[in-house]
Amino acid sequence: MFSVRTFGETTLILVPEHASQSPKEQTQAEFTEQLWVPWWWWPLGLVASSLVATQFALGISALPAWLPYVILAPVPLWVLWYLSRTTLRVTHHGPEGPALHVGDAHLPTSVIARTAVIPPSAKRAAMGRQLDPAAYVQHRNWVRPMVLVVLNDPEDPTPYWLVSTRRPERLVEAIDSAIRR
């Protein structure tokens, strides 16, 4: 992996370019999307926590008036951040080769048979009566379109993945590009 060259009393250790990079730098993503909650949920969360804090401040006179606000204000911010932590990525170069990453789950593109965009009008059927219980579903209610990723792996009981995305055409294009590599 490393090559060592000696020139007289000088020894050079040649390190390959990718070895000096962190694993995140080695994995180049062709597609990346963070599934954030809508921006208007953040002020609504703060208003809701303020209303609850006001109820505590008025109901419990032994507490300092500011304490419920300080304690409850971070709660909706944490909940909204937690709901927004899902990231979609399609990588071409990584330790396991080209892959689709959805949150903590990853799927090598070698087991993907085909992909399709599920428009918002068909989402209800795809998530309802047509949903296979063995499917992997990463659904975010605030994201309307979805992508269907059909698997071709006889050892995996999961028939397909359903993934919410705001840019379904770009995700399908990135997956198809990774499959061709």
Rank of each mutant, 00 (worst) to 15 (best):
R5M: 03
T6G: 04
G8F: 05
E9A: 11
T10W: 03
T10D: 12
T11F: 10
I13R: 04
E17Q: 13
E17S: 07
E17T: 09
H18A: 14
A19L: 10
S20R: 12
S20P: 00
S20Y: 09
K24C: 00
K24V: 05
E25S: 07
E25A: 15
T27C: 02
Q34G: 02
Q34A: 09
L35P: 01
V37F: 02
P38T: 11
P43L: 01
P43D: 03
P43E: 08
S49E: 06
L51Y: 00
A53D: 04
Q55D: 11
Q55Y: 06
L58V: 12
I60T: 08
I60E: 09
A62M: 10
A65Q: 07
A65G: 04
Y69P: 00
Y69D: 09
I71Y: 02
L72A: 06
A73K: 04
A73N: 07
P74Y: 10
P74F: 08
P76C: 03
L77P: 00
W78I: 13
W78V: 12
V79M: 14
V79K: 00
W81L: 10
L83R: 03
R85H: 05
T86D: 12
L88S: 05
R89G: 02
G94V: 12
G94M: 03
P95I: 04
P98E: 01
G103T: 06
G103D: 03
G103K: 04
H106I: 06
P108E: 10
P108A: 08
T109L: 05
T109Q: 01
S110T: 14
A116P: 03
V117G: 05
P119C: 01
P120F: 10
P120I: 11
P120R: 06
S121T: 13
S121R: 15
A122V: 07
K123I: 06
K123H: 05
R124N: 07
R124G: 14
R124E: 15
A125R: 15
A125Q: 15
M127Q: 15
R129F: 10
Q130A: 14
Q130G: 09
L131T: 12
L131V: 13
D132K: 06
A134V: 02
A135I: 11
A135P: 13
A135H: 12
Y136F: 15
V137C: 09
Q138W: 03
H139M: 06
H139R: 09
R140M: 08
W142A: 09
V143F: 08
R144N: 14
R144E: 14
P145F: 09
V147W: 08
V149G: 02
V150D: 14
L151Y: 07
N152F: 04
N152A: 15
D153Q: 11
D153M: 13
E155W: 11
D156M: 15
D156P: 01
D156L: 13
P157F: 13
T158D: 09
Y160Q: 08
W161R: 01
L162F: 10
L162W: 10
V163H: 11
E169H: 12
E173R: 10
A174S: 10
I175P: 07
A178D: 01
A178C: 01
R180I: 06
R181V: 07
